[in-house]
Simulated assay, not measured.
Amino acid sequence: MLIAATLRGVEEPVNGPRPQAILLTFLGGYLLGRGEHVAMSSLIAVLAGAGVSEHATRSTVSRMARRGQLRRVRRGRQVYVGLTPTSRAILRDGDRRVWRTDVVNPRWDGTWTLLSFSLPESWQRQRNALRSRLLWAGFGPLQGGLWVTPAPVDVQEVCAGLEAAVHVRAFTARALEPTDVAEMVRDAWDLPALADRYRAFRARWTGERPVLPDPLAAQIVLQADWLDVIRRDPRLPAQHLPPDWPAVPAQRLFRELYAELDQGARRVARDVLDVIPDEEAAGGEVVRG
């Protein structure tokens, strides 16, 4: 759930995904698992195609480097950007969510994960950080400090590094009479709003799609947009969703479009990316600040 820690400071997009989401999407698709550093000039060029200004790219990279999420080294006059153990974990988490998790749970055994917490009033920042992690992990607020999700969850991983972790209590349980599970689902999650997000995604990417300069930019914006849609989806059991639930068609559209763009995107990446092996980057001058 580490990606939630990275995204917790990112507000809801107004006109598309934020620069940090765009950057993470690119790094996950074209740097993760390759043992390479990419030139800052390449990042600026790629993100510009996705609508991110040079200033926003530089400030986002600097902020993530200060947090230990990126590593910058200088080779001559060029600065190269590489991943750290923290960013690799973030990107692997995002990869699992995008590619290895279905938006509907067809085989639910009726078990809920329950998590409760009570924090001092002065712990607003810690409360927001915990809630962000819980939303990414698929939890919904049921009442007071009680959150629930129908999925098995590694609560220790969700709470890793949070001050609030010492105040968390977690359980697994099954609903008993007279609990109305359908009503509980409606209370914990705003299903109409979530359905609207999936419908809006389909509307944006069918017919007249966003105008972008090349397949790489289109693929990056597509995936960043999809990640923004699914990051609050609890992946509820099929029996507790409306029959016309739009998530599955939206997921099918995302994967079809991604595959359609992939060959062209990789061709553009080969042409524009200036990369060096990680071991060579390690011999460069580390950029501080």
Rank of each mutant, 00 (worst) to 15 (best):
R100K: 14
T111F: 05
R72L: 13
A39L: 04
L115V: 11
L91R: 03
D102F: 09
I44H: 03
S118Y: 06
E121K: 13
W108V: 07
N105Q: 14
A129E: 15
A50D: 02
P106Q: 10
S62V: 12
R133M: 09
F139L: 07
G94T: 09
V103C: 04
A39W: 03
A137E: 01
P120H: 10
T86C: 06
G68R: 08
N128F: 13
D93L: 05
S87K: 01
Q78I: 11
W136C: 01
T111H: 07
L47V: 03
R71V: 10
S62N: 14
A56T: 08
L91G: 01
W112A: 02
V38A: 11
P106K: 10
E121D: 15
N105V: 06
R58F: 07
L134H: 03
L91V: 09
S41F: 00
R88C: 12
Y80W: 06
N128V: 11
W99Q: 11
L135T: 14
E121P: 03
G94W: 04
T84L: 07
L43S: 02
L134S: 08
R75D: 09
Q124Y: 12
S122C: 10
D93N: 12
R97C: 08
A89P: 03
E121I: 13
W136Q: 02
T86G: 12
T111V: 15
W112V: 03
R131G: 04
A65M: 12
R74I: 00
T60Y: 09
I90G: 00
R107D: 13
G138W: 00
R71F: 04
L130P: 02
E54T: 13
R77V: 11
R66L: 14
G68L: 10
R131L: 06
V46I: 15
E121Q: 14
V46D: 00
G94Y: 04
P141F: 05
W136A: 11
V98P: 02
M40I: 03
L130A: 08
S118V: 11
H55D: 12
T57R: 05
G51T: 10
V79N: 05
R127W: 08
R133H: 15
W123F: 14
L47K: 04
A50Q: 02
S42H: 01
R127F: 07
L47D: 01
L83H: 03
R131A: 11
M64V: 05
L135S: 13
S132M: 06
Q69E: 15
W136G: 04
V73L: 01
R63W: 10
R88Q: 15
L135C: 10
R66W: 06
L114F: 10
Q78G: 03
A65P: 00
T113C: 04
L47F: 09
S41A: 13
S87H: 02
S118L: 11
R107T: 12
R67Q: 15
L43M: 07
Q126E: 15
G76C: 09
F117D: 01
